[in-house]
Design a protein around this nucleic acid. Structure first.
Lengths: 237, 237
DNA sequence: TGTGGTGGCTAAACAGCGTTCAGTAGTCTA
DNA sequence: TAGACTACTGAACGCTGTTTAGCCACCACA
C-alpha cells in the first residue's frame, strides 16, 4: 500500500514549502517582521494549517537553525584548502568561511550566534550533534598548527579556537547588525582581526580563557579564571 | 509665574518615571517582551498617556540608548588610569571598561551595538554628538601608544581602535547572548582576545581595514578594500 | 457500493501588541 | 465667569501568535 507513503511525501513537501517560504521571508524582511500569516499566505494555506506541521514559530526557527548549521558545516567542508595546505591556512579558511557565512546568511547567523530572544539552542542540543564534529575538527586544526610550528606549543586547541572565533565573531556581528559605517568593510575588519590575533598567538601569549569541552561542560568542569585583567600589569595583561 | 516651571517639572518627572520603568522592565524581561501597556501599568497611567511623552516605543529606546551611551561615557571616564599611566594601559582600560559595561548593562549594550531590530542610531546621530568625543579620545590614545613606542608607527588611530574594539565586542556579544558554555568566562575571553590583538599589532601588522571618519563618512569617503584574504597567502594574509 | 473513521484543512475567535483618536476633566488666563 | 489649553482616558483599529470547532475529502472495510 503506497497510500501512506504518498501521504508522508505530501506532508514532507508541505513542510519543506513552509520552511522555504519562512527562510525566504526571514532573509528578505528579517525575522520579527515575518508573521505566520505571511508564511501561510505565501504557501496558500491558512495560518492554522502551519500549526499541524510546527508547534510554534520558534519551532520553525529551530528547524531553520538546524538547516543553518548544516549550511555552515557544508561551507566549512567546501572551503577545505587543497591537499597539502598548511594547517594555519586551513584554520584561516575555516574562520573566514564562518565570517562569509555570516554575511551570506545573516538571518541564520543571527539566530545561531547573536539573537538573545530566541529560545536556547542548547535546549535542543541533541538535534545539533554534528556541531560537535565541527568543533573537534577546528580544535584538531589548531593542534596541527602547533605541530607544524605555526603556533607555539602549550595552547589548548579548543580554547584557542574560541578566542580566534570570538574576534571574527565581533566583526561579523558588527557587520550584520549594520554597525559599520558606510564604506567600512566587514570583511577587511574580520580579516585584520584574525591576522592580528594569529600573530599575537604566535608570540607565545598564554591564554587565561578555558573553553569547556563539547558538547557541554560536565558539571564538575574546571571553572574559568574570573576577574583577570583588572590588577594585571601593562601591555600583556 | 512659577506655574509653567511647576508644569515642566511635573512633565519631566513623569517622563523619568516612564524611562525608569522601561529600563527596569527591559533589563528584567528583555526588550521584546515589554509592552507599552506593561510600562503604563507600572507607572499607573493609561498606555495612551505615554504617547504624549514619547512618539513611539522606538523613541523610548532612543532615550534609553542616549542614557546608555552617557553611562558608557561615564564608565570610560571613571576607569581612566592614574596620572602617568602608559597609553597602552589607558587603551586597555578603555576597552575592558567597554566589555564590563556590556556585562553590567546587557540590555543597553544589546540595544547600542547588537540588536538588529532597533531603528538605526545613525538616523538620530545629532543626539549622540558626545560619541564623537569618545571616539576621538580613543583614537588619540592609540596615537599616544605609537608615540610611546608600544605600538608601531604607521597605524591609523581610528581604524586600529575599531579592530581592537571588534575583538572585544566579539567576546561581549557572545557573553550577553549566552552563547558561552557554563563555566566559560566572558571576561577571560575578552581579556585574551584584547591581549592577543595588542601583541599582534605590536608585531607591525599593516591594517587593511579603513575606518570612516566620525561622525559619518562623507559621501566621497575612500572605500575599504573588499575581498581581501581569499587570494592572499598563508599566515599573515 | 455504501459506511464509518481518520486526518488535513479552514474560519473564526482569543488574548495581546503598538498606536490613534474623540472626548473629558481640571487648571490657568483674561 | 467664559474660554482656552493641557493631561489624560476609554475605546477602537489593525496587527500578532495561537487555539478551537467543525467541515470535507479520502481511505479501509463490510
Amino acid at each position: 500500500m503506497g497510500i501512506k507513503e504518498r501521504h508522508e511525501r505530501e506532508r514532507e513537501s508541505v513542510r519543506r514549502a513552509i520552511l522555504d517560504a519562512a527562510r525566504d521571508l526571514f532573509v528578505r524582511e528579517g525575522y520579527q517582521h515575518v508573521s505566520i500569516r505571511k508564511i501561510a499566505e505565501r504557501i496558500e494555506y491558512s495560518p492554522a494549517a502551519i500549526y499541524s506541521y510546527f508547534a510554534s514559530k520558534d519551532d520553525i526557527f529551530f528547524a531553520l537553525a538546524e538547516d543553518g548549521f548544516q549550511l555552515l558545516h557544508g561551507m566549512a567542508q567546501a572551503t577545505r584548502p587543497p591537499d597539502g595546505a598548511s594547517a594555519i591556512d586551513t584554520l584561516r579558511a575555516m574562520l573566514m568561511s564562518m565570517f562569509r557565512f555570516s554575511q551570506r546568511h545573516p538571518e541564520h547567523y543571527n539566530l545561531m550566534f547573536v539573537d538573545r530572544s530566541v529560545p536556547r539552542i542548547r535546549a535542543n542540543y541533541e538535534r545539533f550533534q554534528f556541531l560537535i564534529d565541527m568543533k573537534r575538527r577546528m580544535s584538531t586544526t589548531v593542534e596541527r598548527c602547533i605541530a607544524e610550528g605555526a603556533l607555539p606549543a602549550g595552547l589548548d586547541g579548543h580554547s584557542t579556537f574560541r578566542v580566534l572565533a570570538a574576534s571574527v565573531h565581533g566583526a561579523a556581528a558588527l557587520a550584520i547588525s549594520e554597525r559599520l559605517g558606510p564604506g567600512e568593510s566587514g570583511e577587511a575588519l574580520a580579516h585584520d582581526a584574525l591576522s592580528i590575533a594569529l600573530r599575537g598567538l604566535a608570540t607565545g601569549y598564554p591564554l587565561t580563557f578555558r573553553a569547556c569541552s563539547p558538547p557541554d561542560c560536565p558539571v564538575g568542569a574546571p571553572a574559568a579564571p574570573v576577574g583577570a585583567g583588572t590588577t594585571r600589569a601593562s601591555v600583556d595583561a
